[in-house]
Simulated scan of single mutants.
Amino acid sequence: MSDLQNAPDWSTLEHLVLDFGGVLYQIDHQATASAFAQLGATDFLEHYAHGQQSPLLDQIEVGGISEDGFLQALLAQCAPGTSMDDVRTAWSAVLIGLRPGIVPVLQDLAKHYDLVLFSNTNALHAARFERQILAQHGRAFSDAFRQIIYSHRLGYRKPDLQAYRAVSRQFNIRSLRCFFVDDTAINVRAALDAGWSAAWHDPRASSLREWLRQLGCPIWD
């Protein structure tokens, strides 16, 4: 991934656009796969893994299907006797919580850059993690961002080039002064194709703060 580790020009950087799940928030796809396996859907991870997903998930992440329609489609893959509440709970098992210490990092970054969150997500997950974050951190997390952009509201999802173009157009992101961070390589490559500066971050290897410092971010010098 060395070709996706290019640092931006920090001296001219204006917009810092961050992915959510993985970069800022801990997710566990295996937890959801295990939960659905208990409901009789044993091949869930083959169709809904991060970066490798079914058309059904694409639909829910661009607002192309209702929440009930999506849950009904998942319910049809489960064993008889499974309830909608069972499916809803299993679907949300992926959501763990914000990465430890991430809120102060975002608050520091927001003092220097136009901070924007850009996430592939769906209404079911967004409602759940927003409640969780609000209960644990108040508005400190959301207030760090000038704009929070969810794919299901935008109508496009990464890595569709139209997603980046829509974000630039609708939220006044100047591509030459933008740096995008994501933990999925294909999303980073698409951002580069869209004219953004972008880099791949592996949250398993280093914290966001440590990684940004390695790329030369000057705010903690």
Rank of each mutant, 00 (worst) to 15 (best):
I102S: 11
R88F: 08
S119N: 04
Y113K: 05
D85A: 12
M84L: 13
V105G: 06
I133H: 09
G138W: 05
Q136N: 13
L115W: 06
V103L: 08
R99V: 00
L98S: 02
N120W: 11
L95E: 04
V103D: 05
R128E: 14
P104N: 07
D114R: 14
Q107L: 02
D114G: 08
R139N: 15
N120K: 02
H125W: 02
V105I: 10
V103A: 07
G97Q: 10
I102A: 14
P100C: 11
F118G: 03
A126E: 15
F129H: 04
V103R: 10
R139D: 15
G97W: 09
Q107F: 06
W91L: 13
R99E: 01
E130S: 13
P104A: 00
Y113N: 06
T121I: 01
Y113G: 00
T82C: 11
F129S: 05
V103W: 06
G138E: 10
V103Y: 01
T121S: 01
D114H: 13
L117G: 04
G138N: 08
T82K: 02
F129N: 06
L115G: 06
I102V: 15
N120E: 04
G138P: 07
L134I: 08
D108Q: 11
L106S: 03
D108N: 07
V105Y: 08
R99S: 07
N120I: 07
I133L: 11
D86I: 11
R128A: 13
L106I: 01
V103M: 11
L106N: 03
Q136C: 08
W91P: 04
A140Y: 03
H137R: 05
V103Q: 06
A135G: 14
H125R: 12
H112P: 01
E130W: 12
A110S: 11
L115N: 10
H137A: 13
G97A: 10
L106F: 06
T121P: 06
A90M: 06
F118K: 09
T121W: 06
V105N: 07
F129Q: 00
A90F: 08
S83N: 09
H137L: 01
R128T: 07
L124A: 04
L134N: 13
D85F: 09
G97M: 03
D114S: 15
W91Y: 15
D108H: 07
N120Y: 05
S83W: 01
L109D: 10
Q132L: 10
R99A: 12
A140W: 02
Q132Y: 03
L98F: 07
I96S: 12
V103T: 12
H137Y: 09
A140V: 06
T89Q: 15
W91R: 02
I133M: 11
A126I: 11
L106P: 03
N122E: 04
K111L: 05
